Every structure is written in C-alpha cells, then in structure tokens.
Simulated assay, not measured.
Amino acid sequence: MATQVYTFKITYADCDNRIWRTAAVSSNYTLAELGYMVLATFDTMAYHLFEMKYKNVTFSLIEEDFEDLLYDKDEAYDLMYSYKIGSRRLDLKVGDVIEMTYDLGCDQTFIIELLEISDMPRGHGHAYPKILDGAGRGIVDDVPAFELLEAIKKTDEDGHSEIYYSSSCSNNAPEWDYRNYRVDWDNALLKGIIERIRDGYENYEDDEY
C-alpha cells in the first residue's frame, strides 16, 4: 500500500479548546510515535506513562503497563508499537477519535481526531511529522486541565499565569504564557524533541527510576 498522510486535530481536553494542534504524519507512523509527537508539540517533560484508547482497546507502551489496568472483560489490551497509523488492523477512518492519557495519576487527556487521509506527495516523506496549525503554548506537567484553564483565564485578565514552567527542567523557568505559541518554532524543533522522547521511553534503564 502506498504511503499516505494522516491529518489529525489534537485537542487538550477540558481546557475550553484553548490548546490544540493540527498535525500531519505518515501512515507508517506507529501509535507510539504518534504519542511521542503529541508529547513533543505540547511541550511536556515526557516523564510519565501514557496510554491510548481506540475502539475499546487500550494501547500501552510495554506489556508490564497492563498489570496496572483494571480488568474489564469488554476491553482488550495491546501494544502501541504493533500498530501503524495506516494499517488495516487499526482501520482508522476520517472522524475516528483516539483518546490519549498522559500521566495516569493526573489524567491529562488529548483527543486525537482524524480529519483527513491524503496521498503522500512524491519525495516528501521526510517532511513529516509536521504541525500545520495550533494554539496554546502547550501544557504544564502535573497540572490538571481545570487548573490550567484557570491560569489561562488569569493570563487573559491581567497578563500573568503565576505558573513557572520549562519542559527542559530549567532552574530559571519562565512564567508560562499560553499565548506564546508559534508553529514555525514548533516545527523547527519537533523532530529533535521527538527523538529525545523516543529514546527516553524506549531506551531507559530501570535503575534510573
């Protein structure tokens, strides 16, 4: 099957549609890689577990993650690495929604809706993943959506969120301002950040945690 481009609308849930992205990825991308891209473009520290749910299947990064899930006879479990976005097994169709939860204790949720499937332009495979549009600087780790929404409203009112955050774990973290998002800057850094996140999840050492 020829490689295609899948375009998704990714919205940070329960935050009044203030933080979102439209992103295009190759059909050869796995669900795990889609997850890494979400964590990268939404400026996370990428140090929590995440899972995806689609059509009554819960997808995790490693089999050990299944041990922490409550058993439900009506729900199946599988690995993100085993499914490419464009695979017939996954059978994604326009309008379908994947729910991704990052930080299972804080329940920071992303709604990933498939908007379009198109042919990959010849010779353009390296152009993806790519952020096409978006709003909102990103999320703040360990801060639930309802608190982040309050910080957004406070920023709108007086220009200050009173949240200091940096995904690079800087000691001099700047004040978080959701208005400070530029898609060109995001794309310039996106692939490098994805590779760092991939390495963190796939090549970590147990004794580091």
Rank of each mutant, 00 (worst) to 15 (best):
S27A: 07
C15H: 05
V5A: 02
T22P: 00
V25N: 05
F42M: 01
N17S: 08
L34K: 10
A13W: 07
H48G: 05
T11K: 04
Y12H: 06
A23Y: 14
M45F: 09
T22K: 11
V38K: 04
Y47T: 11
V38I: 15
V5C: 07
Y47K: 13
L31K: 08
N17C: 09
T30Q: 12
D43R: 13
D43G: 02
M45V: 09
I19P: 02
L49G: 04
N17R: 13
A23T: 15
T3Y: 13
S27N: 09
C15A: 07
V38P: 09
R21Y: 08
T3E: 15
Y47Q: 07
N28M: 13
T30P: 11
F42W: 11
M45T: 13
F42S: 00
A13I: 04
Y12G: 00
T41K: 07
N17F: 09
D14S: 06
T22S: 04
R21H: 05
R18T: 13
F8L: 04
M37T: 14
R18D: 11
T3H: 13
R18N: 12
T44Q: 01
S27T: 07
F42L: 03
A13V: 02
L49R: 09
V25R: 07
L31G: 10
Y36M: 11
M37K: 08
T22W: 00
D16P: 02
K9N: 15
T30R: 09
Y12I: 01
Y29F: 15
Y36I: 02
A32D: 11
D16E: 12
N28R: 15
D16F: 10
A2Y: 13
R21G: 02
C15I: 05
L49T: 11
A13K: 12
T7C: 06
T44H: 05
A23D: 06
V5W: 06
Y29T: 13
Y47R: 09
F8Q: 07
T44I: 01
V5G: 02
N28L: 15
T44E: 04
N17A: 10
D14C: 08
I10H: 00
Y29S: 09
T11G: 00
A2T: 12
